[in-house]
Amino acid sequence: MFDRLSFPQPWLSLILFLTWQILSDGVSGGSVVLGVILAWLIPQMTQGFWPERPAFVKTWRMPGYILRVLKDIVAASFSVAWLILSPRTPRPAFVSYPLQLDHPLAISILASTISLTPGTVSADVSDDNKTLLIHVLDATSDQEVIEAIYNSYEKPLMEMFR
């Protein structure tokens, strides 16, 4: 019965525990107890949904990646704002993006990045995890969009998940 008391996702548990302490407005006995309960309960309940753990992740590259994404969000937001304010009609397109990443977690990070950066929303992943359907708000050419995403996001992610 004691295997039920384990922490199957130690990092997730740690993050949940720390997040709860920050949210609960000052560390106290009660917040620690509730934090431990949440850090145990949530990973247990969601365990079935987690993809298997990646073989190797270079976590120290993550801050650089996040900074780059934040910079891109700000820069590209201006172009989307300009597009909304300018009178011309946008040229939207559905682009099928050929994925080279194969780890489910890496694919979901890439899809989230694409959705966050202005001008692109990832709409769907094919069942075999080989293609990502992206809706582009204002596309000049499919190839350009694919190359931009590959160079700025997929390549760094491939280096992280190897």
Binding site: I73, V74, A76, S77, V80, A81, I84, T89, P90, P92, S115, L116, P118, G119, V121, A123, H135, L137
Partner: peptide
């Protein structure tokens, strides 16, 4: 914006910078 798919871009995007 003219259709559903292009409208998806408004709230997820400009808002990110706004809230930031």
């Amino acid at each position: 914006l003219p259709d559903f798919y292009t409208r998806l871009h408004g709230p997820t995007k400009a808002t990110t910078v706004g809230v930031g």
